[in-house]
Structure formats: structure tokens, C-alpha cells
Design a protein around this nucleic acid. Structure first.
Length: 475
RNA sequence: GGCGGCAUAGCCAAGUGGUAAGGCAGAGGUCUGCAACACCUUCACCACCAGUUCAAAUCUGGUUGUCGCCUCCA
């Protein structure tokens, strides 16, 4: 039974979707004015893995992630570079989608862009005005926070206290200091759309409410994003959506904790961010993915080169196991005499062990998606497999190992083909060198043997001596 | 000022009432021509104080430290 921590109730709750076989999930996407940083990558990775788990549980997941493609920072960047905003936006959306692919993120069911959804956004604002939740002043439209009685239910904030906060600028065209903007009037040099209130563009919060409504309907199962979005973004979304639809909006609100750098929040505005692109190229995107899933999504996670090195070494252990297992199975194909059909007592015990790994793996993920705990089970399985393949040859058991191991890795999306550095050598050439090295070893000409090994390593080929022969892989 | 999170080995990180998963790094060993990979062994009284309990890292109160939200932010 899956339980998730719901920010709305501050409790772990049993996950029961609105419909028995489908889950509607909305994750707030990035504002596209730069390549995404590794902090942006955390919700992307974590909620992708969560989605995979739901799929594994038999749900069809309708997964929507938007791109915010109209925003002050985008306009600023366009002006700086003397380009049209659409040019900036198209470029960064393309690059962000590439980053997601590099992270082995499943494509979303829909990736709506704000600028394509203006009709829905304007229509929603009109309805808010009609229902008395919003008012227009001087080309702006504001949401009237004190009209929505549940305002603050997600962030547990009380209007009066927010009002007392010193950091809120008093804007005298607003009826209430906490009212937030739904539509802002056009300024010089800014892109604009025509609305009943004049030329302008939408406020940030209404965009997600409108896109979520259009692509998923009035009610959704899961709304997810970074914890900093709880207030005001998600709080305002609830106000807008529930005011218009008259229904409870999202059943579960999931928020990931931050990825910090030097124990400080990383953000575009603080300027202490690292681009996913750079980190991914240096340590491998699969390492980034592993790193993020190796901690619980609601725990703060610190980032450093040292930690990435460590994560890379950890992941290598899983990769090596996968390769060794495949190698042994491959080897067994050509060698029928070694295939035993009877299980020894030890092998029977291992089958029981696999069952227990399965149970523990699912128990971990059922408990608020504890991917860190689940990964620890993978490592236990790795150890068991590594021990067995040293001597064990039972094909049925080996296949059971493989099935379980691959399944665990698939649920988290952990092992996938990453870009392989081109080597000028063909497989045939490599095998040739390996044969030469083996011959040299046989003649105790170790100098030549080592020379060949070094040569191959320089060409990004790693070789490994095993009982069954020499393995190689491109790295 | 208001609200919230966190504090577990050298590092990272699970565990939320019955005497501490897992990974990296380290040490010793097996394997190897040497290495890499792998395997075996080894490595924590859980920030501090008080309390509840037969029993607490785990619950309660307090202290200290730390991070975040209240403003664009994943």
C-alpha cells in the first residue's frame, strides 16, 4: 500500500487516486531563460522516478509538466541579446528537453507552454472576476485573497500575519496587500496579448491553474514541485482553481526538498548554481540521477564534486554487476553442459532471499517513495549476485537474478545507455588486441601485455580478466 | 518578527519504541604475473540536557547549531 506525504495535511496518507487506473499528475516546470541547473533537476528526476513507480504499480499516468515561457527574466535576456523572446524560449526548451532525456526522464504526456494557452488563461481570469474573486484596476487584474476563505491552507499561513510581514510592498492599487496579480498591463518593449483589460500578460500563478485545468481537468491526483513553490505559487493555484471550479483541486501535494551547494540554497538569483549540463558532462547524467535518488526526496541534499565522485563509484558497482551478470549468462548460452536444472539447498535459499529483496524494495517505495532505502536493497542484491556468479551456474537462478535486478533498476530508471565516447577501434580490432595480450601473458611477456592494456585504456576501452575469459567495455 | 525543516561513522545516507540498512573512502586478507573488477573480514552507544517507558537514535519538554519559506525561485 503506497503512502505519500501530503503537504496539505502534513501527514503520510494512503495513496488513492480519483480513478482506479489512472493518475493525473502535474509538475511545475522551469522558466526557460537559461539551461537548467542541478537544483532544477531534482524535482525532474525525483518525480519522474515516482511516476515510473506508479506505472509499475499498474497505473496509467497522465503526466503534465509546463514550460513558463513568458516572464521578466526571459524578456530581460532577449533584450540583452537583441533577440526575440520566442527565439530565446525555443532554444532553452529544446535544451531542457535534451537535459531531461539525458537524465532518462520519460517524456511528459504534455508539455504545455504558457504562450500557447492564453485563451484558457484569460477565460479563467474572466470567471474569477464573474464569481467575485478577482477585480480589475488600471489594466491589472488581482485575485482577492480575503474572498477565498481557505487561503493559506497549504502553507499554513494566516492572512493577517502575512500582512504584517515587513517585506511586502504596499501597492496602493491593490485592495488588500496580499492580493496577487492575475494579469499585468503591457510595458514598453514587452510581449503582450489582447485581453478584456487591455494589452498585457498573465501573472505567473494563473498559468499553472489554467494549464492544469485544460490538460488534466478540474481535479487532479498529484501536484508536485520544489518546496519553495508552496508559498505563494501553490497556495495561489489552489485559490484560483478552487475558486473557479468550486471543487477540491489536487488530492496530494508533493514537494521535494532543496539541493544545496555548500549547504546553501542554490538558485539562479543567488548566482551560486551549477548547470546540469556541466555536471552531467563531467560525472555522467546517470550519476546525477543516481545521486538524487540515493537520498529521500524530502531531505535536503548537498552537492559537491566529492559527493559526485562518490556517487559515480557507487553507481559503477551496480553497472559492473549488470555487465558481469549479462556476461555470465551470455557465456552460459554456448555451454550447455554446465546448465544444472536442480537447485541445491543454497540455491533454494537464494530464491527465498530474492523474494525478501522484492518485498523490502516495494515496502521502501510504498513508504513515501523511499528511493534511498530501495537503492540499498539493490546493493544487497548486487552483493548476492556477485557472490553467486563466482561459482554458481544455475541458469534459472541466474535469470531470476537478472529479472529482479533489471526490474529494480527499471523502476527507478537507474541504468540506461548514456552517450559513449567514440573509440576509433572496432569490436573486431579490440578482440584482436585482447587475443594478442592473452598470448603475451601466456609467454610471460608481461611488458607487452601491459602495453596492450594501456593502449586500450587510452582508447577508452576497459578490460577485465575473469574466469570465463576477458571482458571489455567502452567507457 | 511569523512559520517550518533538519542534527545518525572520515564523507553521504536509511532507520521514527526493542540494543544501528546501504554506498564512498580507509585497514587487513583472498583472487591476479602485476593491476582493475569481485569476494571475505573490519570500521557508530545516533548534537546536548531533562523526562515518559521494562525498553528511545526513535515519544515529550528544553538547549544549542543549522537550513529554508514569508520576494522571483525547483
Amino acid at each position: 500500500m503506497l503512502k505519500v506525504y501530503n503537504t496539505l495535511t502534513k501527514k503520510k496518507e494512503e495513496f488513492i487516486p480519483l480513478s482506479t487506473d489512472e493518475v493525473k499528475m502535474y509538475v511545475c516546470g522551469p522558466t526557460v531563460y537559461n539551461l537548467i541547473h542541478i537544483g532544477n533537476a531534482r524535482p525532474i528526476v525525483v518525480f519522474d522516478a515516482f511516476r515510473r513507480y506508479l506505472i509499475d504499480q499498474g497505473y496509467k499516468v497522465n503526466f503534465v509538466q509546463n514550460f513558463t515561457d513568458v516572464d521578466d527574466k526571459i524578456i530581460k535576456k532577449a533584450n540583452e541579446q537583441g533577440k526575440d523572446t520566442s527565439e530565446i524560449v525555443d532554444f532553452y526548451i529544446k535544451e531542457t528537453l535534451q537535459d531531461m532525456e539525458n537524465l532518462n526522464v520519460l517524456p511528459a504526456t504534455a508539455n504545455p507552454r504558457v504562450t500557447n494557452e492564453m485563451d484558457e488563461i484569460i477565460a479563467m481570469i474572466e470567471q474569477l472576476i464573474e464569481k467575485g474573486y478577482a477585480y480589475a484596476v488600471c489594466g491589472s487584474v488581482f485575485f482577492s485573497t480575503d474572498k477565498f476563505k481557505d487561503y493559506g491552507k497549504l502553507s499554513k499561513k494566516v492572512l493577517e500575519e502575512l500582512e504584517a510581514g515587513a517585506r511586502i510592498e504596499i501597492d496602493n492599487i491593490k485592495a488588500h496587500p496580499m492580493d496577487f496579480v492575475l494579469w499585468k498591463p503591457k510595458k514598453d518593449g514587452e510581449p503582450y496579448w489582447i485581453s478584456p483589460w487591455g494589452k498585457g500578460r498573465p501573472g505567473w500563478h494563473i498559468e499553472c491553474s489554467a494549464m492544469s485545468k485544460k490538460y488534466l481537468g478540474d481535479q487532479i491526483d498529484i501536484h508536485a514541485g520544489g518546496e519553495d513553490l508552496i508559498f505563494p505559487h501553490h497556495e495561489n493555484e489552489i485559490a484560483q482553481s478552487e475558486a473557479v471550479n468550486g471543487k477540491h483541486y489536487s488530492k496530494y501535494w508533493l514537494h521535494n526538498s532543496f539541493l544545496n551547494i555548500d549547504n546553501k540554497k542554490m538558485s539562479k538569483s543567488l548566482g551560486n548554481f551549477m548547470l546540469l549540463r556541466d555536471v552531467g558532462e563531467e560525472f555522467g547524467y546517470d550519476t546525477v540521477r543516481f545521486f538524487m535518488l540515493a537520498a529521500h526526496y524530502r531531505s535536503p541534499l548537498n552537492f559537491s564534486d566529492k559527493l559526485m565522485e562518490s556517487a559515480k563509484a557507487s553507481l559503477l558497482r551496480i553497472k559492473n554487476c549488470s555487465e558481469d551478470l549479462n556476461f555470465v549468462l551470455d557465456h552460459l548460452k554456448n555451454e550447455s553442459k554446465n546448465i544444472s536444472t536442480e537447485f541445491t539447498q543454497d540455491e533454494e535459499n537464494l530464491l527465498t532471499q530474492i523474494d525478501s529483496y522484492n518485498t523490502r524494495f516495494y515496502t521502501a517505495l510504498d513508504d513515501d517513495f523511499n528511493s534511498a532505502d530501495a537503492i540499498s536493497i539493490i546493493f544487497e542484491l548486487v552483493k548476492t549476485i556477485n557472490s553467486y556468479i563466482k561459482t554458481g551456474k544455475n541458469k534459472t537462478l541466474l535469470l531470476t537474478f537478472k529479472e529482479t535486478f533489471d526490474h529494480f533498476n527499471d523502476v527507478l530508471g537507474l541504468l540506461y545507455e548514456t552517450e559513449i565516447k567514440a573509440s576509433s577501434l572496432t569490436d573486431e580490432e579490440i578482440l584482436n588486441y585482447i587475443a594478442k595480450r592473452s598470448a603475451a601473458k601466456k609467454n610471460k611477456d608481461f611488458a607487452t601485455a601491459d602495453q596492450i592494456r594501456t593502449f586500450l585504456e587510452q582508447n577508452n576501452i576497459q578490460i577485465k580478466d575473469t574466469r570465463e575469459g576477458v571482458q571489455f567495455k567502452r567507457v
